[in-house]
């Protein structure tokens, strides 16, 4: 039995703009990489690319529908194109263009959607709460969400190695470091990052978490362990294709399953896991933690995560009840973070 609990806990060190740096490094080695933006250059960390590799950076202005078509044309002429904007503007507004010009044609276009879910106080116009659902529904599209600053540079490399289209969901700015230096991003497998590594050992609960909710799930798991529950946290980086065998393997040794996503519970990780479990005839009790079929308000991320049920405490309450425990439920220890630093909420 291996306990993987040493480097995952808050408070977290943070890295500034790891995506923007990684994209520059990739493009320095790979001369066909083009960077496209839509009037959100600094906000998508691509000011670094513009300043270093300006001849391969194009600002397409606030014209996302056109931008997806331009990306397709560039890809058809032999380029690998990274399109950078906020997730909501990369998915909802140009959905048909992404579908017809990029997904249908299976082109080498990487769509980078920043500010996932409720990570922004921008309200419903800026919160990408259905982007995973939209992108998952497109044939040929790979959908990736990452948990920390170690995974981001690896994700840039990994999606660059995929020949077809990819949607990469990214928190922007200061990104926490959850994993140690040896951590390897795995797009092919769901991975137990916290808990009982021995795949034959039974556990009370498995939390399948993606993106920002991995950190929140680790905090929740600690509180649940405090009342005697054996809990695994599984990092799901590839929402599509989903490692169905891995989901079944981990769910198969769990008395209960929780999914945790900073996204609508419709169409995202929770739905994807439910589809796998149901089609396999698995009767394991399941709860989906995420945004419950609602639009959100324009308030602070911390408020939003608590109000819309994405906090670690909400995970604990849901999980404890699912595991047959009665209230009062264990409390999550609130680890203070420096102002301006990342908060797992």
């Amino acid at each position: 039995m291996t306990e993987k609990t040493s480097t995952l806990r808050a408070p977290y060190a943070t890295v500034l703009k790891p995506y923007g740096q990684a994209l520059v490094e990739l493009a320095k080695r790979k001369s066909n990489v083009i960077c496209l933006g839509a009037d959100l250059t600094r906000q998508t960390e691509t000011d670094l690319f513009r300043d270093e590799l300006g001849d391969r950076f194009f600002n397409g202005a606030m014209s996302e529908q056109n931008l997806m078509g331009v990306a397709a044309g560039l890809a058809r002429s032999g380029h690998q194109v990274f399109v950078n904007t906020f997730g909501v503007f990369a998915t909802r507004r140009p959905y048909e263009q992404v579908a017809m010009q990029i997904a249908y044609a299976n082109l080498d276009v990487k769509i980078i959607g920043l500010m996932p879910g409720l990570s922004t106080p921008g309200g419903p116009s800026h919160q990408a709460t259905d982007d995973i659902a939209l992108m998952r529904a497109l044939p040929n599209m790979t959908v990736v969400d990452v948990a920390d600053a170690r995974e981001i540079p690896q994700a840039v490399e990994a999606i660059s190695a995929i020949s077809g289209p990819v949607y990469l969901r990214l928190k922007r700015g200061e990104i926490p470091v959850l994993f140690d230096e040896s951590h390897q991003l795995d797009l092919d497998n769901v991975v137990v990052v916290d808990g009982v590594g021995d795949s034959s050992a039974e556990v009370d609960l498995t939390i399948f978490a993606t993106g920002m909710m991995v950190a929140a799930s680790v905090a929740a798991a600690d509180a649940l362990r405090g009342v005697g529950l054996e809990v695994n946290v599984v990092n799901v980086t590839s929402l599509k294709p989903l490692d169905a065998a891995g989901v079944l393997r981990e769910a198969g040794r769990s008395k209960a399953v929780l999914t945790a996503e900073n996204h609508s519970i419709i169409g995202g990780l929770g739905s994807a896991v439910a589809e796998v479990l149901a089609e396999a005839g698995t009767g394991v009790p399941l709860r989906r933690v995420g945004i419950r079929d609602t639009f959100a308000r324009a308030f602070s991320a911390r408020y939003l995560f608590e109000h819309y049920g994405l906090s670690s405490q909400h995970l604990v309450d849901t999980a404890a009840a699912l595991c047959g425990r009665s209230a009062p439920f264990p409390e999550v220890i609130d680890v203070p973070q420096e102002v301006g630093a990342y908060s797992p909420v």
Binding site: M68, G69, V70, G73, L74, R76, G78, H79, M100, Q101
Partner: peptide, 24 residues
């Protein structure tokens, strides 16, 4: 050179092809 039919999309792809040709 592209799949069209959903109207209004072709010129963007053509622009991307033209930019791509210039870069190459």
């Amino acid at each position: 050179s592209a799949t069209c039919g959903s109207l209004g999309q072709g010129l963007s792809v053509a622009a991307g092809l033209a930019l791509g040709a210039r870069l190459k």
